[in-house]
Nucleic acid binder design. Structure first.
Length: 420
RNA sequence: GUGGAUAUAGCUCAACUUGGUAGAGCACCAGAUUGUGGUUCUGGCUGUUGCGGGUUCAAAUCCCGUUAUCCACCCCA
């Protein structure tokens, strides 16, 4: 357990059997998102720092203190802290006619240099989508419906969807000013953090966990009051579409999404099965300037570590694990048999049969290895079998053993695998 | 970035308070009459006590530093 053998802080290896769960989650996600007309887009993990500073906002925590930034060849580069900006950078580079109406999804690692904690890693993994269709409540509702659909496909159980609007980006300053004015008179009642937030990030006062702050917030007008009628109407229409689709949600005027590029519809999905970091997924509509283009879209991201955490907390992770493919174990007695088994394995594999063997050892130890690996059948050959051109085939579950000619082995195993 | 807790065999943990040869269960390995796994029985292996320093005749144990993990804050998926 020396530190040289450990991964970097906040980053971890994923080994079997948990990695099988990850594969299954990704497979279900791809199937679901492709059913909604999304195509995969793979963007680099490394981007120019400016891709994020200009879209997420210079003052956001993610940009200010959580990015892995480094310099290479005089360029300021970074590991991507989220998925949307890189996808938009791709879109900006391809021109409007080609990317308008695009539906992309991504799966991959993101990096934020935060203090690790339950449900939070420095390298974490997200699946997300971005939809560049013209803005409409119908689109936002469809995207949120997809996200809920996906969480259901994973068997996540009850999750709470909180929905809100941030209004148009052009109106953000007016909302902030309105809230500041409303909170100024009550500043003395707020916690230290919130007094700081009033000037730095007013919206964050709304979702402070401090009870005293919540008491103040309850008496302050909700942010929607300071938005345009059109913004309120957009939210109402989106909600109506969600009702029609049977998607359950709760409008929460205090819901805040931190990144600057959000406008109009925003939402967050939480599970009660988790600890403090209970947000499993989030999403929203956004607008950003990149590469001389203005990009408008709607998307979501889901934290895979947290999905795994919920499934484990609910004891549902095993339900998603596919049964392992049946394995054949070859046992050989003596050097000659072991050599011949090495060649036989390649014949089995050519017939799409999964197989392994031990490099040597006693019959007992080879059988033990077969059992430990969970082999369904053992193919055993010693000197007798080699001279007679046969092999012993043992069913590990029942213990039954038969001897058959070598050329019958592949058909017999194929038939047994098919009938499992 | 801030605060609290923790670090002992491959795994889960004991021994620490009150310094005196580091232990259990599981796992692993080998046997139980000739070439057969799982259950059982018998035997065996396993550690620079995270790392570095200090105090002491003597440190897993007390002190300092460091690294990592866990939990929470901040923030976010």
């Amino acid at each position: 357990m020396s530190s040289a053998n450990q991964p970097v802080q906040g980053m971890s290896d994923v080994a079997a059997p948990e990695v099988c769960l990850w594969q299954r989650l990704e497979q279900l996600a791809r199937e679901t998102m492709e059913r909604y007309g999304f195509e995969e887009l793979r963007t680099p993990v490394v981007e120019f720092e400016s891709v994020f500073t200009r879209s997420l906002g210079e003052t956001t925590d993610v940009v200010q203190k959580e990015m892995y930034v480094f310099e290479k060849g005089g360029r300021r580069l970074c590991l991507r802290p989220e998925g949307t900006a890189g996808v938009m950078r791709h879109a900006a580079g391809r021109g409007a006619q080609e990317t308008d109406g695009a539906r992309w999804y991504y799966v991959g690692p993101m990096f934020r240099s935060e203090r690790p904690q339950a449900g939070r890693k420095r390298q974490f993994h997200q699946v997300g989508v971005e939809c560049l269709e013209p803005p409409a409540p119908r689109v936002d509702a469809e995207i949120l419906a997809l996200q809920v659909d996906l969480l259901r496909a994973w068997g996540l159980g009850e999750c709470e969807v909180r929905l809100n609007t941030r209004g148009e980006i052009a109106g953000h300053a007016a909302v902030a000013a309105g809230l500041r004015a409303a909170l100024a008179a009550r500043e003395a009642e707020l916690c230290d953090d919130c007094r700081r937030r009033i000037s730095e990030n007013v919206l964050r006062v709304l979702d402070c966990k401090n009870a005293a702050c919540q008491a103040v917030v309850a008496t302050v007008p909700p942010p929607t009051v300071f938005m345009s009628p059109a913004a309120r109407e957009y939210l109402a229409q989106t909600a109506a579409h969600l009702d029609a689709l049977g998607v359950k949600y709760r409008i929460d005027p205090r819901l805040v999404r931190g990144l600057d590029y959000y406008e109009h519809t925003v939402w967050e999905i939480a599970s009660t099965a988790l600890g403090a970091q209970n947000a499993v997924a989030g999403g929203g509509r956004y607008r950003m300037q990149l590469g001389g283009r203005e990009l408008v879209g709607v998307g979501f991201a889901i934290g895979l570590e947290r999905v795994v955490g919920v499934l484990q907390a609910l004891g549902r992770d095993r339900d998603l694990l596919p049964p392992p493919p049946p394995l054949v174990w070859l046992v050989g007695l003596g050097e000659a048999a072991l050599d011949r088994n090495l060649a036989l394995m390649q014949q089995l594999r050519a017939a799409k049969i999964a197989c392994r063997m031990a490099p040597g050892g006693s019959l007992k130890s080879q059988m033990r290895a077969a059992n430990k690996a969970g082999a369904a059948w053992v193919v055993l050959r010693g000197e007798d079998e080699l001279t007679q051109g046969v092999a012993a085939l043992k069913d590990m579950a029942s213990g039954e053993q038969t001897t058959l000619p070598l050329d019958r082995l592949v058909p017999e195993l194929t038939a047994r695998i098919a009938s499992r």
